[in-house]
Design a protein around this nucleic acid. Structure first.
Length: 329
DNA sequence: TCTATTTGACCTAC
DNA sequence: GTAGGTCAAATAGA
């Protein structure tokens, strides 16, 4: 890609002043983000022109590309903020002077306690990964205990991902703050496929999906209740709409269902119901493993935004309390 | 019997 | 010394 090559040129530039190189990189990132923003605007114009008069597809494409554009805007605001300014030249060089790292402590240091992602949800376990609870702690000045989870594959696949779940309100349904630490290094795509996992992977026709839920007993029903099906419909609509935009094809709603995905609509229902008691839930074993995209906090931008790359950015941004509908932390 | 959860103890950072 | 994060033995459930 052009972006990569440009950044590579910028980053690979030889020079004695590391601060200068850092500034160059910073400028390069802003430059690329700006260009991405411009290209998104062009793509949006082209897509809307191509899809003019096609109702649902047009609206969905407009929504998705608007969100992409918003992501670029937010990233640019982050990169332009003083906090993201490149380090000053007064900073002492640390690489050579730093002492040899001691044996890494097994426990996370306080510096690492900054979550890579934070979200508020009433379904703290439904994020597409399997977790195992390894601890619970009552935190001072809080009403509810904090639960600690590791990725279920932390041992066999050395996945270091952890998350903390803490109830923060007694509402109905109760709300939880979920904090994620470390990236998943496990390959969740290789999970064994239970029927529900197959259903949620997008490979099962929606008619079959609905029929499965109607036909099966508690097992599948627990995973894909009616609201889950509704959410699945919406997810596929988004995916197919974006594919149509990129492929220039007319969108056809999956399974002939008409699902409205728009700003005016009330937030779609959550997919999960069993997660409202994190201390007793079997830590996500039933949480629809597989390729199902993680569902981001329903509050993000007031929309039911799926966790594709774009919304990863959105979610990340939310934790910085930027202007908008972000998560207030 | 196996696996996941619970919970008190221990360890580390502040 | 305190608070928060993790460990690991005990326990529960399938």
């Amino acid at each position: 890609m052009q972006t990569q090559s440009r950044l590579a040129v910028s980053g690979g530039r030889s020079g004695s002043n590391s601060s200068s190189a850092s500034e160059d990189e910073h400028e390069a990132v802003i430059r690329e983000l700006t260009r991405g923003h411009e290209l998104t605007a062009q793509l949006r114009a082209e897509a809307l022109r191509a899809l003019r008069g096609q109702g649902q597809a047009e609206a969905t494409a407009a929504f998705i590309l608007q969100e992409v554009s918003r992501a670029f805007t937010v990233c640019l605001s982050i990169m332009s903020s003083p906090a993201r300014a490149p380090p000053s030249s007064q900073q002492p060089p640390t690489m050579e002077m730093a002492p040899a790292p001691a044996l890494a402590p097994p426990r996370r240091s306080r510096d690492d306690s900054i979550p890579r992602e934070q979200r508020m949800t009433s379904s703290p376990h439904f994020d597409g990964y399997q977790w195992r609870k390894y601890g619970q702690k009552r935190i001072t000045k809080t009403q509810f205990p904090r639960c600690y989870f590791k990725c279920s594959f932390h041992r066999e696949r050395s996945c270091r991902a952890t998350k903390q779940v803490q109830q923060c309100s007694n509402d109905d349904p109760p709300q939880y703050v979920v904090m994620y630490f470390n990236e998943h290094t496990c390959d969740t795509a290789a999970w064994e496929t239970a029927p529900a996992a197959a259903a949620s992977s997008g490979m099962m026709p929606l008619d079959d999906l609905s029929a499965l839920v109607a036909r099966q007993g508690h097992g599948v029903r627990a995973l894909l209740d009616e609201r889950g099906v509704q959410e699945e419909l919406e997810r596929r609509l988004l995916v197919s709409s974006l594919a149509c935009v990129l492929g220039g094809q007319h969108h056809q709603s999956p399974a002939g269902s008409a699902v409205n995905v728009g700003h005016e609509q009330e937030p779609p229902p959550r997919a999960r119901t069993r997660d409202d008691a994190p201390t007793s839930a079997p830590a996500g074993v039933d949480d629809a493993p597989g390729e199902m995209p993680r569902i981001i906090d329903e509050d993000v931008a007031g929309l039911d935004v799926m966790d594709y790359d774009v919304t990863d950015v959105l979610c990340f941004v939310d934790s910085y309390d930027l202007p908008g509908d972000g998560f207030p932390f």
